[in-house]
């Protein structure tokens, strides 16, 4: 027992390395989580941006937080997919019959999601800088942004883990991807909610992505974050707790 716990970190690193290879060898994943968000950013800034009134000097400054969330949202479907394949192909079974910590396999996927998103988000921020994105934010604000993005990644990862672990078919595993894709679109990520008609606006203003976007935007532009940050944190932590409990229940059932 003791030896197994001592190796928990080692085992996680092996798992992380494994799924990072999966990501780097899947052109599809790289396109969806990095190239697509960059393409959207280019599209919105250089095609649609001229017509969008946001009240900021530079549209890319307004847009970037939303693009970062879209990149994270796009990666969630792959978490489900990778978990499903591991379960279906008996890889988890092999790991679970080995002397390694039970949860290492699952946490390996969660860690992979954090690391791979960190990499793709850094690439996207670099491209945004080339496109003229500038931020007066200091190091502490950037750290806060990184923390919120990590929390949002964890939120979506744990949501995605539930269908990934419980689905019977690969289509079932991917079911969560679509609603997650849409959340950033119906929020203040691209345009201010003021321009939206009543019901849409009500939805947009009361869903997690808007408060997260507003918080990140405020941090990056050195504005006071106000109460939005608490709403954002409450959403993320609340969803993580519920999704974590569900995912662990499914995982333990057969692990």
């Amino acid at each position: 027992m003791e030896t197994i716990n001592n190796y928990f970190f080692n085992d996680m690193v092996v798992m992380l390395r494994r799924s990072m290879r999966h990501i780097f060898r899947s052109l599809d994943t790289i396109i969806t989580v990095t190239i697509m968000p960059i393409a959207m950013m280019l599209l919105f800034v250089y095609v649609l941006g001229g017509a969008i009134q946001t009240g900021t000097k530079n549209y890319v400054d307004y847009l970037l937080p939303g693009i970062l969330l879209i990149a994270i949202a796009n990666s969630a479907g792959y978490v489900s997919y990778r978990l499903f394949l591991d379960k279906q192909r008996g890889i988890f079974e092999r790991f679970n019959s080995m002397p390694i910590a039970r949860s290492a396999a699952l946490w390996g996927h969660v860690l992979t999601s954090l690391v791979s998103n960190a990499i793709s988000l850094m690439v996207i921020v670099l491209v945004a800088l080339l496109m003229g994105f500038r931020s007066p934010a200091g190091i502490l604000s950037w750290l806060a942004v990184a923390g919120i993005l990590a929390l949002f990644t964890l939120t979506l990862t744990w949501i995605a883990a539930v269908p990934g672990l419980s689905a019977k078919t690969v289509d079932g595993a991917g079911v969560i991807a679509y609603p997650i894709h849409f959340l950033p679109l119906i929020s203040s990520a691209f345009v201010p909610t003021k321009s939206m008609p009543g019901p849409v606006r009500a939805f947009a203003e009361h869903q997690p992505v808007t408060s997260i976007v507003e918080t990140i935007r405020a941090l990056l532009s050195n504005q006071p974050v106000g109460h939005e940050i608490w709403i954002a944190l409450a959403w993320c932590i609340g969803i993580i707790l519920v999704a974590y409990l569900f995912a662990m229940r499914v995982y333990k059932k057969w692990a």
Binding site: D11, R18, G90, I91, R94, F95, S97
Partner: peptide
């Protein structure tokens, strides 16, 4: 050691990477 009913190999990794992974986990 268990060899389950369906070959539980990681298809995206090479044969060598599969073996090294298990050796590290052991």
């Amino acid at each position: 050691s268990l060899t389950g009913q369906f070959a539980a190999i990681d298809e995206i990794l090479t044969g060598r990477e599969n073996l090294v992974m298990i050796a590290r986990l052991r």
